[in-house]
């Protein structure tokens, strides 16, 4: 399972001519420069530099504990809730400094939604789960339409349309995760962050969610953390590979090793550590 099949069929297709496109043609959503996060005095991630392009799927891969989740949570200011967590460097969202004191973090999170590792619906009905976001954001319009739309986009509508009033906990794990995706889509975000969204799911549920991601890419920018390299290879356009640097004083700091087009990362990585990781030699 660790050997990765890198035949072109298994890797996101190369779009003719993209390589030759000038950088400026790519619409950038997040620009990360010298991104770093500390927990208290502990440096967890450092030296992160890359851009997230609009309507692309960006995968973040790397061994456990290298700070993938920590970094992902910088992008919607989720780290604000962890006492002692401090984000350094410069992260911009559509050109605006995400950590400017004038920025409303709740508004950021409405635009940059997040799907978590474990499906975690609210203890409410299926309908109320999806309607939660629109309601708290004072959505004016047809809530039923919006909920149906979100569930349809999350490829769940047909399975739940007859039991919208039932508890969300009555759904299977894979359905719950798609419900969480629908819940995120219902607030009409611009970006969806996903932190190992399939790691608690079986292969069939996983492949449904992967199909869904590719589907959603048309309208949304997606950043996904995964430790499943086949998944990164299958769905993403760009891949960021992180690893853990162990310092002389045994300090462990996650760093970005390489960021490139997924095809390049999986066929001709420029860093030996990337190659070692994707061929299963370490990690």
């Amino acid at each position: 399972m660790d050997e990765i099949d890198v035949t072109p069929a298994n890797v996101a297709p190369v779009i003719e001519g993209v390589d030759e496109q000038p950088e400026t043609a790519r619409e950038v959503v997040f620009e990360i420069r010298d991104g770093a996060v500390r927990y208290g005095s502990n440096l967890a991630v450092a030296d992160v530099n890359f851009d997230v392009g609009a309507r692309e799927i960006t995968a973040i891969i790397g061994p456990s504990g290298c700070g993938k989740s920590t970094f992902l949570r910088c992008l919607n200011r989720m780290n604000d809730f962890i006492p002692g967590a401090k984000v350094e460097g410069r992260i911009t969202y559509h050109g605006e400094n995400l950590y400017d004191p004038k920025v409303d973090a709740a508004e950021v999170r409405r635009r940059v939604g997040m799907v978590f590792q474990k499906p975690n619906p609210f203890p409410k009905s299926i309908f109320d789960n999806v309607a939660y976001g629109p309601r708290i954001n004072r959505f004016k319009g047809d809530l039923h339409d919006l909920v149906e739309q979100a569930l349809t986009r999350a490829a769940l509508w047909d399975e739940v349309k007859d039991k919208l009033k039932k508890s969300a906990y009555a759904l299977s794990g894979g359905q719950q995760q798609r419900l969480c995706i629908a819940r995120t889509l219902a607030v009409q975000p611009d970006v969806v962050l996903m932190d190992e969204p399939c790691s608690a799911l079986d292969p069939i549920a996983t492949s449904r969610i992967e199909d869904l991601m590719v589907e959603l890419k048309r309208d949304f920018t997606i950043v996904i953390v995964t430790h499943n390299m086949q998944q990164a290879a299958r769905v993403s356009d760009m891949t960021a590979f992180f690893t853990t640097d162990v310092g002389e004083d045994a300090s462990r700091v996650g760093r970005l090793v390489e960021f490139d087009r997924t095809h390049t990362i999986f066929t001709s990585p420029s860093d030996q550590r990337t190659e070692g990781y994707i061929t299963g030699r370490f990690g």
Partner: peptide, 14 residues
């Protein structure tokens, strides 16, 4: 569960 709060915040909740 902290995840419940987090997902509410992740939807733009205050």
């Amino acid at each position: 569960a902290p995840e419940l709060r987090e997902s509410a915040y992740a939807l733009g909740g205050r």
